[in-house]
Amino acid sequence: MGASILGLIQAAIRMSTPILLASLGGMFTARVGIINFALEGIMIVGAFFGVYGSYVTGNPWLGALMGAIGGIVVALILGFMSITAKVDQVVAGTGINILFLGLTSYLLNIIFGIGAKPSKVNSFVEVPLPLLSDIPILGDVLFNQIPLVYLAIILVPICWYIVYKTSFGLNMRAVGENPRAADSVGLNVIAIRYIAIVISGFLGGLGGAFLSIGHLSVFMEKMTAGKGYVAWSSVTVGKWNPIGILGAALLFGTAEAFQLRLQAVGIEIPHQFFLMLPYVLTMLVLTGFVGKTVSPGALGKPYSKESK
């Protein structure tokens, strides 16, 4: 049992990291007032180009970078739709997701042949942290991770600092709460929103790359399986705050880890119910948290200078 609990912790960290990365990205768009439903599409493109980049260059770091750049491109489409074209952000996000879930399947077939899978690509390897990983039992579980895990965890305080302690963070929050007021004091609403979009694409793409070259080394069609939506839910549940988001991502990640581990342990519940668990949990948690959080004032509302 001890071994399976350690295994669970390990799996929980592995499952939480991509959600954490993507939700931190989602937080930036939420803070400037954009609903980032496209996280699913951003992540799938990140996953695809993560594998592709690693396949072409042989270097998982370059793969992750390509994944992040791919994520930025997808995010910019959402940015154009929501900032410039001013359309319904949820529907635009859904359209983007359908488009890129299809496009990545298409590219997979074009590049590697119909029905084929890419041959083995290099993925990240664990880097034990000196000293910390020598702690008996827990040291190996907690401090022997791939670099993207450390990066994701360091990003939590960094994002917190950006949002609450820098002038850029203040500007972002102003734009998200009341774009008209922000505009009247001379802030460039459009530019700030686009910057947030780029950050979210970068982080979401990185989260996607984690899925494909973090522990696996393969891209599968639709491998995000709704993680983008779960990530957006953890932005809400985490109250638009990086520390809350860390908690929410850990919660959802642990639910997924449970699903994997309990199957392995052989508990007598059909595995399909474990597969459902993260999705059921998302619904329950959203229901439990609603009304207790106050979303950024202008969330989902496009801004135009002329009107009103």
Partner: peptide
Amino acid sequence: QRTVQVPASLVFVIQGLVILFVLM
């Protein structure tokens, strides 16, 4: 897909594009 070997997943690409362009 059968005749010119263009993957059928192109349908989803077209669908997504249609949604985006219709919104605009």
